[in-house]
Design a protein around this nucleic acid. Structure first.
Length: 893
RNA sequence: AGGCUCGUAGCUCAGGGGGAGAGCGCUACCUUGACACGGUAGAGGUCGGCGGUUCGAAACCGCCCGGGCCUACCA
């Protein structure tokens, strides 16, 4: 046995054990194993990412589950990996290029992609190291990247298959365009933000000069592309106008007034300008007209006005143009007014640039049929979403889903496997690059320039990482995966799409459970963000408090369905817990050097205290196992915390001391028991605090704690998890009597401000012989824990003169304080106690007098309340009796 | 506009139809041979407000007030 330092210092320890685990291959899965499979795929962090609180929580929860299942003997696989993060990564590298005065268009596609790969090799692994630092026990031999060869093959297979089945198609329609990233985005990649803006009222004169119509808009610059004014068909104000033409200001173009039921009569003037090329609603109105309205594109992909906007505006930035349009309208006398108006703007989720709806030819996935299956899987319980409230979110989205725009006009990603024939214009979608056009035989083929949405490859993650489209042993053993652990922010992006693709291509759900955890916020409930400056860096937390304390904090905070408001003080508190465990271990190891840890442990005829703590251990193990089984991480954490600190340390270790230091005959048994408890506690705690538990466990005799057979002694990582241990009800009851007496003495000591070092003489009157027997049998404990000399115990014990008293449920504790006792103080104490009991008596009395209660409450509840009442009443009388004696002694009434 | 969620001790949060819990902070006493990152004993709460269901509500239901989030085409 080696010596442990006086306090736990995580520095050095963590790296040491992580390397030990890696070299021992404890995290490497064996697909051939017959044990029950438990598999998780990690939500792949972006290759550009670095560890933030969200990752830390997500990874910690997964690691707790994975380590727990591994210790329970499951065949565990946790697949790690990264996402190529198309737009985000391209942005990072482009920024780097621009600082060097370079530009991707100038470099060309191949050189640019080579550059991104180089960037990935240099910087892309950062988050992986950080996950390891957190203790993540992933099978790193199976690490994947969404752009590696195997996954790329899966992507092509899925794309081509969906195309062949008519579930992928190409269409020209309005899309969300980011003028900065220069690409189309799907609907969910657009964020909405409320903003104080202006509603501009503009007058459109009628062509025939008979009047005018006023429209209201939040985007005046788009008027240059108007092709109609729409009013509600039943709006009497505008009845006569429908079918007439107005003259579009600043352009002179003649455009019709049309009717459409989507126009809100109450909003603005009730007349809407229609710009089909730059607004989704307007596009819809245009399509409904017979014949459909024209579309005039006045804003280009770069966010600048096109030639069609007119010579005066062409080339202007869209916001610059807005100012120009307003001032021109004012000059023309057509600007009616501008009023304040809150509007919601759409912005790119990657760069926050305001989205410009543009018409373009893009690839789409027809999601309807896929979504229906994915909804069915949840409704039928083949996928369980936990907590269940998230099911609503999932259903609501799935049932109103639009087709998924999957093409992106960037270079970093999976290039779309479609070729266009220069001869006949045919489209060829193929797994391999075709040599010639199948239709006309032409060889002038050009591959589609676009790449796929990053989330397209993420959607395949649960089976592509297991080797699909090959038929692998991994797929057979580990698919469907057991649980997906993720945040609610990517239910649409990821969870829903994995469900769709898994069911489509594997004919089975990708995961049985989806555990949705909270978002980590700061202590005041704000979302953490760089711009708010309220970001807490997990790496700094680990550095300051150690990984184990940090992980334990996250687990303790992870209550279902609630956001995590992270507070550093809690981490500090749990660092104290780590240290407590460390010191308890130090004590146990220092006092048990001469005994062996048994393979199996039989409490046999151990003393009450030992049986009691073993019983508490059993209850705790049950609690932890069932809490983890229900994803109640916080319950699991608090249960094991409570046991370790307040039962093992506060009571049992203190009880063990007189035995260890004395010459009592039970010494050996207590030593063995302590060692066994330490071993179990460490194993119980290991999933939460992997490092410190391994460090202590390895320090235990020969590093072979609870070795068992095979390799189990090598590391706590693969030791057995405590489960189904024996309990001892009688010991728990009897221990309750001892604790009651002890706290009685302590309360007197505390409330009368008697020094802890002062040894008190104590008399205990018990209400029954049996209680007396139990206490007498445990005199050593009583004496040590109460720091007292126990003079007498029994039913017949009389209160000595000038004694302080604690009236307990099963006993009365007397502490004679000849000369020391301040009678008034003592009477105040008893009065306080009496008041408390009196409250209970009154409450219970009222309840028991209530006939409805007696009649309608369950029998056992009534019985219990009656017992409680009797008990309180008796106790009250005993308190009063003691007070009376005190009054007599003090000579006052 | 709809939907979800939260309001419990000074702070951060658990709990959840039969007399309010934790951590930190606070008060008093204590360096007792694991630990002052410690020990013992305390103080502290009309469980957001109002109604309802119930023998019984902090918990279940409705409304209101106050936070937060998500979805949606009101230009």
């Amino acid at each position: 046995m080696s010596e442990l330092e006086k306090s736990y210092n995580p520095k050095g320890v963590e790296l040491k054990w992580y390397e030990y685990w890696m070299s021992g291959n404890y995290f490497v899965a064996d697909p051939g194993s017959k044990a029950e499979a438990f598999s998780i795929v990690i939500p792949p962090p972006n290759v550009t990412g670095s560890l933030h609180m969200g990752h830390a929580l997500n990874t910690t929860l997964q690691d707790i589950l994975v380590r727990w299942k591994r210790m329970k003997g499951c065949n565990v696989l946790w697949i790690p990996g990264m996402d190529h993060a198309g737009i985000a990564t391209q942005n990072v590298v482009e920024r780097q290029l621009s600082s060097e005065g370079l530009d991707r268009h100038w470099m060309g596609r191949d050189a640019f992609i080579a550059r991104v790969w180089k960037w990935k090799e240099e910087y892309g692994g950062r988050i992986i190291h950080q996950l390891k630092r957190l203790g993540a026990s992933c099978d790193w031999s199976r690490e994947r990247f969404t752009l590696d060869n195997g996954l790329s093959k899966a992507v092509i297979e899925v794309f081509v298959t969906l195309y062949e089945q008519g579930l992928i198609y190409r269409d020209n329609r309005l899309i969300n365009w980011c003028p900065r990233c220069h690409t189309a985005l799907s609907d969910i990649e657009v964020e909405h933000e409320e903003l104080e803006g202006k509603l501009t009222h503009i007058m459109y004169p009628l062509e025939d000069g008979s009047g005018s119509v006023v429209v209201a808009t939040t985007r005046p610059e788009t008027m240059l592309g108007d092709t109609a004014v729409a009013v509600h068909p039943d709006d009497e104000r505008y009845e006569d106008l429908i079918g007439k033409k107005v003259s579009l200001p600043l352009t002179g173009r003649k455009i019709p007034v049309v009717a459409d039921a989507a126009v809100e009569r109450e909003f603005g003037t009730g007349a809407v300008k229609v710009t089909p090329a730059h607004d989704f609603n307007d596009e819809a109105i245009a399509k409904r007209q017979e014949p459909p309205l024209d579309s005039v594109t006045v804003i280009g992909p770069d966010g600048r006005m096109t030639a069609e906007a007119g010579a005066r505006y062409a080339g202007m930035d869209r916001y610059e143009c807005r100012k120009a349009v307003i001032s021109d309208l004012k000059e023309a006398g057509l600007l009616v007014k501008q009023e304040k108006h809150t509007l919601s703007i759409s912005q790119c989720y990657r760069c926050k640039t305001v989205i410009e709806p543009l018409s373009a030819l893009q690839w789409y996935v027809k999601v309807g049929p896929l979504a229906r299956e994915a909804v069915k899987a949840v409704r039928e319980g083949r996928i369980r979403i936990i907590p269940r409230t998230w099911e609503n979110t999932y259903f609501a989205w799935m049932e109103n889903i639009n087709d998924w725009c999957i093409s992106r006009q960037i270079w970093w990603g999976h290039r779309i496997p479609a070729w266009y024939c220069g001869g006949c214009g045919d489209v060829i979608v193929s797994r391999e690059a075709p040599a010639k056009c199948g239709k006309c035989g032409g060889t002038a083929l050009r591959q589609d320039e676009d790449v796929l949405d990053t989330w397209f490859s993420s959607a395949l993650w649960p089976f592509s990482t297991l080797g699909w489209p090959e038929s692998t042993e991994e797929l057979r053993t580990y698919y469907p995966t057991s649980v997906l652990v993720t945040g609610f922010d990517i239910i649409f992006f990821w969870v829903a799409r994995m469900a769709m693709m898994g069911i489509k291509f594997m004919k089975d759900v990708p995961f049985s459970d989806v555990y949705i955890h909270a978002l980590v916020r700061d202590a005041s409930g704000q979302k953490m963000s760089k711009s708010k400056g309220n970001v807490i860096d997990p790496l700094i937390m680990m550095e300051k408090y150690g990984t184990d304390a940090f992980r334990f904090t996250l687990a303790a905070f992870a209550a279902q369905g609630r956001d995590v408001r992270f507070s550093e003080e809690r981490v500090e508190g749990y660092r104290h817990f780590v240290n407590k465990l460390w010191n308890a271990s130090r004590f146990i190891l220092a006092n048990t050097g001469d005994v062996e840890l048994p393979q199996t442990f039989d409490a046999g005829d151990l003393d009450i205290g030992s049986k009691w703590i073993l019983s508490r251990l059993a209850v705790t193990a049950d609690d932890v196992n069932s809490a983890l089984g229900d994803y109640r991480f916080n319950d699991a954490a608090s249960s094991v915390y409570q046991f370790t600190w307040h039962e093992l340390c506060d009571w049992y270790i203190e009880m063990a001391k007189p035995v260890l230091y004395g010459e009592s005959f039970g010494k050996e048994a207590v030593k063995v028991c302590l060692l066994y408890l330490l071993d179990c506690t460490l194993r119980l705690l290991h999933p939460f605090m992997p490092y410190v538990t391994e460090e202590i466990w390895q320090t235990m005799k020969g590093g072979k704690a609870a070795a068992g057979d095979g390799r189990k002694g090598e590391s706590i990582v693969i030791a057995d998890y405590p489960l189904s241990l024996p309990g001892y009800d009688e010991a728990e009851t009897e221990m309750g009597l001892i604790m009651e007496a002890v706290t009685g003495v302590r309360t007197i000591r505390g409330e009368l401000n008697l020094a802890p070092s002062l040894e008190l003489s104590v008399y205990i009157k018990t209400l029954s012989e049996k209680t007396g027997d139990v206490l007498r049998k445990n005199l050593t404990y009583l004496a040590k824990l109460a720091k007292a000399r126990i003079i007498e115990i029994g039913v017949e014990v009389k209160k000595p003169r000038g004694a302080a008293v604690a009236v307990r449920t099963f006993s009365e504790v007397y502490v004679p304080l000849e000369g020391l006792l301040n009678i008034e103080m003592e009477i105040d104490r008893l009065k306080k106690e009496e008041a408390k009991v009196e409250q209970s008596v009154a409450f219970l009395n009222k309840k028991l007098l209530n006939e409805d209660f007696l009649k309608r409450a369950p029998k056992d509840v009534v019985l219990k309340e009656r017992e409680k009442y009797e008990e309180c009443l008796k106790r009250k009388e005993r308190i009063q009796e003691n007070m009376r004696k005190l009054h007599e002694a003090g000579g006052r009434k």
